[in-house]
Write a protein that binds this DNA or RNA. Sequence first.
DNA 1: GCAAGACATAGATGATGATCAATGGATGGA
DNA 2: TCCATCCATTGATCATCATCTATGTCTTGC
Lengths: 138, 138
Amino acid sequence: MVAMYIDICQYSRVSKSAGSLLTLTPVETVACCSPLTSRPLTADQADRIAPLLKALADPVRLRLLSLVASHADGEACVCDLNDAFDLSQPTISHHLKVLHEVGLLDRSKRGVWVYYAVRREALADLGALIGGVAATAG
Amino acid sequence: MVAMYIDICQYSRVSKSAGSLLTLTPVETVACCSPLTSRPLTADQADRIAPLLKALADPVRLRLLSLVASHADGEACVCDLNDAFDLSQPTISHHLKVLHEVGLLDRSKRGVWVYYAVRREALADLGALIGGVAATAG
DNA sequence: GCAAGACATAGATGATGATCAATGGATGGA
DNA sequence: TCCATCCATTGATCATCATCTATGTCTTGC
């Protein structure tokens, strides 16, 4: 259970069901860490968490994430997102890729359209890591 | 009250007691915004919040913040922090400056030593903005 | 007052990233 | 089959940043 803040990362490999051992994605690392303020982060933990924050630390990506999250059904197609910005389509595509690669956005293709959806648990875990409060139950 | 998520930023200037009108620091912006997922961020909001996340989005700064926060009395002197990293003293000083400038670390000089302390409300507000949960009461 | 120690600043460099124009790949309709 | 549309990739450019060495600015003790 995440909210107990047992620092699994520091002690052992986390065996993922039918997944690879020892490799923790950024979002997985966040989910299993105690809050920033409760105990010093190890260098490894920091190295895995920083890319997640780096992905968030851009005005365009912040707005993209927020736009997708507040869309009906919690997902949005790229064509809608393009129109919301005064940027080229490849640039938006690039930002969406960054958010997807770190695990903050899910991607699903339906016909000609590609839909992105926010992974809310990932956001909640990250918020808990920073804010020091328990994540909204998963 | 922060937890009500009234989006003051979008509607009016916030008058700070004896402060400048219209200029919101990153931390102030965070404190008065509703969560990322509840409503699309404006471009202005995103522009003010991104620097805060950018400051956090570095492994060294994450560890610094975490180290300071989990120190006794919630503050740490630079000399202690230097020893925890395999980096030059100016580099650590640079990272501390970045965290201080965005309002995540307070700075106080006592004698020859400089102590940094984490601004926990700022962290809590940022966590709430990302995670979508109410900030720990300020 | 002077030397020593604790931090900060300045300037330089190599790496990373945000952006665009051009192009490629896939899907669905005519 | 061919074209139009949606989205991703490529390659290039300019800006930002992490880091270092060298130097400056305090503060304290002698």
